[in-house]
């Protein structure tokens, strides 16, 4: 996986600045759209660590995303008041990370096709837990209390504040992954994608590295889910469904599997395409299906294949 060069990172920083200034020039609707795109970017970034990092195509990622979102609900219900974001954000990451640590050892006994099927099945198992039992408020979803940001929000200030919070979390997540991919751990991960047997022969504990990546990716997906819960104040079991994992894979592919910043480009492109589709037809799945077909048939390198980094 390529990481953006200094120039690429500067361009990303400029883009972040453009988003950060949205409260001065954009409508609340467009700010919400940007927030949606940034949450999708976080979610896809977490998946990119697996797909672009070690070449693990997981369909359980949405389950960790959903667990992160439901953690906010369960915390609020247990406490009887909105949890502070300083509590709920780490809690979401921890719950999703622990779930990944429990599922990972089983899923990682398999590779390729089997890995896909087992992650799909375990993800759906979690989906059914929230869909079929009363633990998460039932199949139709529930409205939740938003985490407390530490200051009072009005209806008008809410959208820009959430926008900036999402931007901060996304930037932190990107920076953390950029750093991670430059450590030995990152190199080993890339080595596994290129040739797993060789990395094993070199004496690396391949399974442990893959498990670590799986857990980190799960925790990051949990953070993305937490931000979704903060923005929407609503959770439902569909958040855990594998269709959302597939969407995240599409974003990763759209942005380019080979680049760390790909998911960010992909998420904005995907959100814009969805918005455009909504404006011309009621049939969302038709638009989405055709976009995916076009992406897998035509856009092999993704948007990051456009020169942005080497």
């Amino acid at each position: 996986m390529r990481c953006a060069t200094l120039r690429g990172n500067l361009l990303l920083a400029v883009a972040a600045l453009v988003v950060a200034c949205m409260p001065f020039y954009a409508s609340p609707y467009h700010m919400q759209l940007a927030s949606i795109a940034m949450i999708a970017a976080m979610f896809a970034l977490s998946l990119q660590l697996l797909v672009g990092g070690a070449g693990m195509v997981s369909l359980a990622q949405a389950a960790f995303f959903g667990l992160g979102a439901y953690t906010v609900y369960l915390l609020g219900r247990t406490l009887g008041r909105p949890p502070s974001i300083l509590v709920s954000l780490p809690a979401s990451a921890a719950v999703a990370g622990i779930a990944a640590a429990l599922i990972g050892p089983f899923a990682l006994r398999t590779r390729g096709f089997f890995f896909l099927m087992t992650t799909l099945a375990f993800g759906q198992m979690l989906f059914f837990v929230f869909h079929d039992t009363p633990i998460g408020g039932g199949a139709d979803g529930v409205f939740i209390q938003r985490p407390d940001l530490g200051f009072a929000l009005t209806r008008a200030s809410r959208t820009p504040v959430f926008l900036l919070t999402d931007l901060a979390v996304l930037a932190a997540m990107y920076a953390a992954l950029w750093w991670l991919m430059h450590t030995l751990f990152g190199s080993v991960l890339l080595g596994i994608r290129a040739n797993e047997d060789r990395m094993r022969a070199m004496g690396h504990n391949v399974t442990r590295v893959k498990l670590a990546a799986f857990v980190i990716a799960g925790a990051l997906a949990g953070i993305a889910g937490h931000m979704a819960a903060l923005n929407d104040a609503f959770v439902n079991p569909e958040l855990l469904g594998w269709h959302r994992s597939a969407e995240a894979l599409l974003i990763v592919l759209l942005g380019g599997i080979g680049a760390l910043h790909g998911p960010i480009l992909g998420a904005f492109a995907y959100t814009l395409i969805g918005e455009f589709g909504r404006s011309i037809t009621e049939r969302q799945r038709l638009v989405e299906g055709l976009v995916i077909l076009a992406a897998v048939l035509l856009l092999r390198r993704g948007l990051a294949g456009l020169r942005f980094a080497r």
């Binding site: 592919l253 038709l286 077909l293 992406a295 897998v296």
Partner: peptide, 22 residues
């Protein structure tokens, strides 16, 4: 092709089949 491409191709088919059904 890679598994990822196969997953996405068949996911697209699911969406198109469901839309056709609807």
């Amino acid at each position: 092709r890679e598994h990822l491409d196969q997953v996405l191709l068949t996911f697209a088919l699911i969406l198109l089949f469901e839309e056709a059904r609807s």
